[in-house]
């Protein structure tokens, strides 16, 4: 009874192997397309395979298994995958798509390798069982339902060793090619939208560090040593990571003058109102929107979508006020009047 079974199994395997081999060239030509470049800024190289001829990546280019992507300084790209997960590729980053399988009913699994640079992953569809693994120079990161930042190589060493938690350890010997820094960004337990709470497992040298809260980080100084962490990333570290992933935003300024925004000041201030921007999913049942149009409504009113001043809900309990950090006007004869809160 066992022989026929073995025979059937062997025949099946042979048939499948033959089919697979026969299909291989066709598939190689057809490619297994798993997504598209959704934005490309600057010099971003794209290769079908790592040793293939490189060309400039363009928006709408299809991304397939085995594709190799490398960005230059002040360049970035985002890959949008079929389940609407995204990999944001920062400047001076090298990435390879090793594997990606997506079934809308079952979920998604993805494996990518980041060789160096900065990578941000946002999970897409919340349906099914979704997993992703990122191979980094010094370890492996398993992620679930997550927003996560990963730095690899020199930039990881720079940011990682500047972290107070790492700096306090003193004898951390990092390798500039292998250092890996992982930061979980969310969703956290208090996420809106019922999203899957994020989790990342950072593994190296047989040791796994679990990141299960936004802001927790793990650092692998070099291959063959366990991850350090979890520790809470510093604000300064987050800024550095953001600048690596969004170099154009960092260069545009907004954090201390200069940059191309300087000429846009009058437009910018009058062009946007956060309360209006958030009107679609707003939590204004808690607090009224605040409008800064350069012509604020009086206290007790807020500006509606059409620009009109609308009385706040008289039943609205007072919310916390945030002091206006702008320099206050010099005292006038009306100095006894209480300062007006910026919250309308």
């Amino acid at each position: 009874m066992r022989t026929p079974n073995r025979l059937v199994a062997a025949l099946t395997a042979t048939t499948m192997l033959a089919s697979n081999l026969a299909a291989a060239p066709a598939l190689a030509q057809q490619r297994t397309e798993v997504g598209a470049a959704s934005v490309v800024i600057g010099d971003v190289e794209f290769r079908e395979q790592q040793d293939a001829r490189a060309r400039q990546l363009e928006r709408r280019d299809r991304i397939a298994w085995g594709n190799y992507i490398a960005s230059a300084s002040n360049s970035q790209a985002q890959l949008l995958l079929l389940d609407r997960s995204t990999f944001s590729i920062g400047e001076r980053t090298r990435l390879r798509i090793d594997e990606y399988v997506y079934d809308p009913a079952e979920g998604r699994s993805a494996v990518v390798t980041v060789l160096r640079g900065a990578l941000r992953f946002f999970s897409g569809s919340n349906e099914g069982n979704n997993t992703a693994d990122v191979n980094a120079p010094a370890g492996r990161i398993g992620i679930r339902g997550t927003a996560i930042d990963i730095l690899a190589g020199e930039v990881a060493e720079e940011v990682g060793e500047d972290e107070p938690f790492i700096d306090n350890m003193r004898n951390v010997d990092s390798d500039e090619d292998e250092a890996t820094l992982v930061v979980l960004r969310g969703p956290g337990a208090q996420t809106a939208g019922g999203l899957t709470v994020g989790l990342a497992e950072v593994t190296s040298a047989g040791v796994t560090v679990v990141l299960d809260e936004p802001g927790l980080a793990a650092y692998i100084p070099r291959a063959g040593v366990p991850p350090i962490g979890p520790f809470r990333i510093s604000d300064a570290g987050l800024v550095e990571i953001q600048n690596e992933i969004q170099p154009r935003v960092a260069r545009a300024g907004g954090g201390g003058g200069g940059g191309i925004l300087g000429a846009l000041i009058p437009i910018a201030v009058g062009a946007v109102a956060l309360g209006v921007l958030l009107s679609n999913d707003d939590d204004d049942n808690v607090a009224p929107p605040n409008i800064d149009t350069g012509n604020n409504c009086d206290r007790g009113y807020y500006r509606g979508d059409n620009g009109q001043c609308i009385a706040e809900n008289p039943n609205q309990p007072p919310t916390a006020s945030v002091p206006d950090p702008r320099p206050t006007a010099p005292p006038t004869e009306d100095a006894e009047t209480p300062p007006r809160s910026p919250i309308g």
Binding site: A147, R185, G186, P187, G188, A189, Q190, T191, A192, G193, L195, P214, G215, I233, D235, L238, V239, Q242, G253, G254, G255, G256, G257, L261, L264, I265, A268, V269, V272, A273, L274, G275, L278, D283, A287, P289, N290, I291, D292, T293, G294, N296, T319, A320, V322, D324, P325, R326, P342, I343, G344
Partner: peptide, 30 residues
């Protein structure tokens, strides 16, 4: 998504002259 630290860090990078002090205060409050 409960990454309040990340959100507040981005807000801290915003120039009041560009984004509007009230917008920044509103975002920080939210």
């Amino acid at each position: 998504i409960d990454d309040r630290q990340g959100g507040l860090v981005e807000i801290s990078q915003m120039d009041e002259d560009l984004f509007g002090a009230a917008n920044i205060a509103d975002a920080r409050d939210r």
